[in-house]
């Protein structure tokens, strides 16, 4: 017996023939050429961004003409300000290097053949609950942070798949999410990585079999840090590193923190403390 309401709604997901013909045609093209064909349909989000960008350019142009080009500089300034505050990469000298690094990382991740990560999210209502789950003490009290800082530990991934097959049931990943609001305005890029004892290489998380894992990086908001730390805990006796990078005031800050994953809770907490202390 099925719930008709849900079933009926699911049946409203249309799968029209032209769409299927397009997909099949693309599949065959990919198989024959070895390359993914250019998407026939623009991604809606990309399209929306392009439209927004076009409107912004036209608005600035009209403004520039109306104010005898005096407004053009103002528009540029506003644009610069916007992107330095909200874009993922501030316009600092090292940003190019880091952008390349991120792009490389993205590309390499995309090329991982047959790998699909399966993540089960698990949220904890309290640090106590998280401590119980991980079996190690971890709490905000272990993060004696200045300013208004809120932290939460969330998201639990426990396995991954290789070509649809469960790779290792004991494989576990822990995502430590930190939402920090700092007293000072911070304009930075944050990269957090955990590597196992195979080492940290070119910004990638190296797995034991040589495969690369997805790094995690978040950009700060105007006055805070949003960060996710990715911890691999398959081998609890693995030595690992919390690796974080920030760009602030034209300088690249790098923190590499030893984190024996046997008691990763404490070490990650300490790593977070060190990271936050950098900004106090």
């Amino acid at each position: 017996m099925m719930n008709n309401k849900v079933s009926d709604s699911l049946s409203k997901i249309k799968t029209d023939e032209p769409s299927h013909e397009r997909i099949l045609s693309n599949i065959l093209e990919t198989v024959h050429s070895g390359r993914t064909p250019k998407r026939v349909v623009h991604r809606p989000v990309r399209k929306a961004i392009l439209i927004a960008a076009a409107i912004a350019v036209m608005t600035t142009a009209v403004w520039a003409v109306a104010t005898g080009f005096g407004g053009l500089w103002f528009g540029v300034e506003i644009g610069t300000e916007f992107f330095t505050q909200t874009d993922k990469m501030p316009a600092y000298p090292l940003s190019t290097e880091l952008r390349e690094y991120i792009n490389t990382t993205e590309a390499e991740v995309d090329e991982i053949d047959g790998w699909a990560w399966d993540t089960y999210n698990r949220s904890f209502d309290s640090w106590n609950e998280a401590s119980d789950f991980f079996g190690v003490p971890i709490s905000l009290s272990t993060l004696p942070l200045k300013g208004a800082v809120e932290g939460r530990l969330s998201d639990f991934g426990k396995s991954y798949y290789n070509e649809g097959e469960r790779y290792d049931e004991s494989e576990r990943y822990v995502y430590v999410t930190l939402d920090a609001t700092l007293e000072k305005d911070v304009n930075c890029l944050v990269n957090f990585h955990i590597s196992n004892k195979k080492g940290f290489e070119n910004g990638m998380v190296m797995l034991e079999d040589g495969q690369t894992g997805e790094p995690t990086y978040y950009t700060s908001k105007a006055n805070g840090i949003k960060a996710v730390i990715w911890v691999r805990t398959e081998d609890h006796d693995d030595a690992g590193y919390v690796y974080a990078q920030f760009i602030r005031d034209n300088a690249l800050y790098t923190i590499s923190y030893d984190a024996s994953l046997a008691d990763y809770g404490d070490n990650v907490a300490q790593g977070l403390k060190d990271i936050i202390d950098t900004f106090q």
């Binding site: 997909i23 599949i27 998407r39 349909v41 047959g114």
Partner: peptide
């Protein structure tokens, strides 16, 4: 659009 991409990638995989 993203669904088409995902379906494509799934079958290619």
């Amino acid at each position: 659009a993203d669904t088409e991409d995902a379906v494509h990638d799934t079958f290619c995989k």
